[in-house]
Design a protein around this nucleic acid. Structure first.
Lengths: 225, 225
DNA sequence: TTATAAAGATAGTATTACTATCATAAATAA
DNA sequence: TTATTTATGATAGTAATACTATCTTTATAA
């Protein structure tokens, strides 16, 4: 039996639900490929439409603009990742084992998840690394936040923050440490591959060293405090 | 006597040196204000030109495009900050006192430096927080890197990394920790002001708590390892 | 069968991101 | 001093971007 995993998305993120039609799914699938290939700056709805074999207007019926689409993709990713984390830490008792598992999930490029046919999670993960922060680094972050566009990201941080507190109930900065782990997992990955002298992973270029660095950072803080 | 501080800039960043003329300085000064006010995405050379009282073509004579201008501004900022760090840690013996000083400088919004008349460092610092990472989060980061556009950022990281090593010569991740401190100083600041639930600084909204968090994070790692 | 919703086809507009040209004023070199 | 280079100003033009609007066709549902 094959299960289909559906991430429940904030309705305000789209004009028409892309999960509800073939065209919609194509928009998600091909936008991930296009943004991955050429970057978000040069990505346009026109190019996407040509790629899919529809028209610009067709894409605009689903998403107000390309920034909304990016926010949708990131929100989807955070929702999916929260599910992964809940799933993979489900029966673990020891909170530090849990946290190690979380760090590994955050820092590892996952192979394509068969449960979500139109989303390639591995490629999406790469997009999150390079483009993810652009979803909120805008002047309208406040408005977007009011519409709860970043709720999946916040929920994920809350989950990670709670595991941190389980590890050490006295630790003073669980939320900041959670958002730090998430951001650093991505930034160190980007630096490793693009500006390696900003990291200590120059030759290795493996995600395992990022995981080691994060574990060192996090558990020294939690054991000490 | 008033000293004028000049940051030596990479010549490939501009077509004509903006420090060399009144118009050039106006471009720097007003672009900082405009990007701060409306964000980088909506910033255009046309708006900038109108603001200054010149024409689009006038601005294009100095910078190839707005991304180059952003890279210039960030490079300037990192160069300036490295000078600040060198200056303010000059006579300090104890490396951990030094590192604390560095963290404070990284996380504090500095008031306008009189030595650089056309650059408002406080506003520029805010731009670095919100837009700084967009300078390198592009598909052409490799090309830009080859042209040494990010050298000031790398140099700064190297300086911080060396202080980290002074604190603990056995620490395994000095460069990654250095880039982590720098990025997190900015991200936690952005989150504090825009997505406060991602931090533990919700009510305080003061840079001092970010500094406390960073100190905790860094020195737990350095003392332990 | 009819209504209705989604998609396709086409057109049009304002803005963005440039490039090109020519005139003029200011600085500088012969 | 004049001649010449250099920076700026003024204006025009173009391709691409970021949309909006309308009309027709096709699929689906009542």
């Amino acid at each position: 039996m094959k299960l289909q995993l559906q991430i429940k998305m904030n309705e305000a993120l789209f004009l028409r639900n892309p999960e509800s039609s073939v065209l919609g799914k194509k928009i998600i699938q091909h936008s991930i490929q296009l943004i991955y290939k050429n970057g978000f700056e040069t990505f346009t709805f026109k190019k996407l439409a040509e790629d899919i074999g529809t028209t610009e207007a067709g894409v605009y019926r689903y998403f107000e603009n390309k920034h909304r689409l990016l926010v949708y993709l990131t929100a989807w990713y955070w929702g999916w990742l929260e599910f992964q984390i809940t799933y993979h830490t489900n029966n673990l008792q020891d909170p530090s084992v849990k946290l190690k598992r979380v760090i590994k999930l955050l820092a590892t490029t996952i192979e394509d998840d068969e449960q979500t046919s139109h989303v390639n999670e591995g490629v999406l993960h790469q997009i999150i690394i390079s483009e993810g922060s652009k979803a909120y680094l805008t002047k309208h972050v406040g408005d977007d936040n009011k519409q709860l566009f970043f709720k999946p990201y916040k929920d994920l941080c809350a989950v990670v923050g709670n595991i941190i507190l389980e590890c050490n109930p006295k630790y003073k900065y669980p939320k900041s440490l959670a958002s730090t782990i998430i951001e650093i997992a991505h930034f160190q990955n980007f630096f490793m591959n693009n500006l390696p002298s900003l990291t200590d992973f120059g030759e290795a270029k493996e995600e395992s060293v990022i995981i080691a660095f994060l574990n060192d950072l996090v558990f020294n803080s939690l054991e000490k405090s």
